[in-house]
Simulated scan of single mutants.
Amino acid sequence: MDTWLVVGLGNPGASYAGNRHNVGAMVIDELAQRGGATLRTHKARARAAEVRLGTLPGGAPCPKAVVAVPLTYMNESGGPVAGLMNFFKVPAERLIVVHDELDIDFAQLRLKLGGGEGGHNGLRSITKSAGTKDYLRVRVGIGRPPGRMDAAAYVLKDFSPSERKELDFLLPDAADAVERLVHDGLTTAQNVVHAR
């Protein structure tokens, strides 16, 4: 059974842990917890764990996946991702990147294959290091900054208290979306996730 690589983007360190920009890493924590796994430091400059993504009908185990969070800053995510792809022999078509998305309303999820980076430095770094834009993305909506707030400042702020309550639903939904992508493929997963 082929291994998948699911990477959640964020910045390392406790001061960034609750930032909007770190929602991708939060989803990986959810997936690791579901798989009963602990993320451990990997030589590719990432924290990673091997899990099974849910169970198939009849209780058969699902495909193997490596869930990971780069230990570098967001704009250098590509090196660790390429390192993990090489180490676990995962091609770009089995790479899923979970990241925050300004252009989607808070708590909305969108799935896509390839496309531009939309000014997202983590995606730009991965595209450069992986040598392709054609990898799957789980885009977790964080909404636009209020008023005239700079987007760069907004993504590095923690979720508001009301948003934090929503995270209890959003993170499991995003983890479900990752599992659907692996089990059902992009089109079927989009039909379910985008209908919400």
Score class of each variant (00 low, 15 high):
1 M>F: 02
3 T>P: 00
6 V>D: 03
6 V>W: 09
8 G>K: 04
10 G>S: 03
11 N>D: 07
12 P>G: 01
12 P>S: 01
12 P>Q: 04
13 G>P: 10
17 A>C: 01
26 M>N: 00
27 V>R: 02
28 I>D: 00
36 G>Y: 07
38 T>M: 10
39 L>G: 02
44 A>F: 09
47 R>T: 08
49 A>L: 04
52 R>W: 00
53 L>S: 08
60 A>Q: 09
65 A>N: 03
66 V>W: 08
68 A>R: 05
68 A>M: 08
70 P>H: 01
71 L>D: 15
74 M>S: 00
74 M>K: 06
88 F>W: 15
90 V>K: 00
98 V>Y: 01
100 D>W: 11
112 K>S: 13
114 G>V: 06
116 G>N: 07
122 G>C: 06
128 K>E: 14
130 A>H: 01
132 T>E: 00
132 T>H: 02
133 K>E: 12
134 D>Q: 14
134 D>F: 07
136 L>E: 00
137 R>A: 02
137 R>D: 01
142 I>A: 02
142 I>E: 01
143 G>I: 12
150 D>I: 05
153 A>Y: 13
156 L>E: 06
156 L>D: 05
156 L>R: 11
158 D>G: 11
162 S>L: 13
164 R>V: 13
175 A>D: 05
176 D>C: 08
182 V>M: 04
184 D>K: 12
188 T>C: 09
188 T>E: 15
190 Q>S: 03
191 N>A: 14
193 V>D: 02
194 H>T: 09
195 A>E: 12
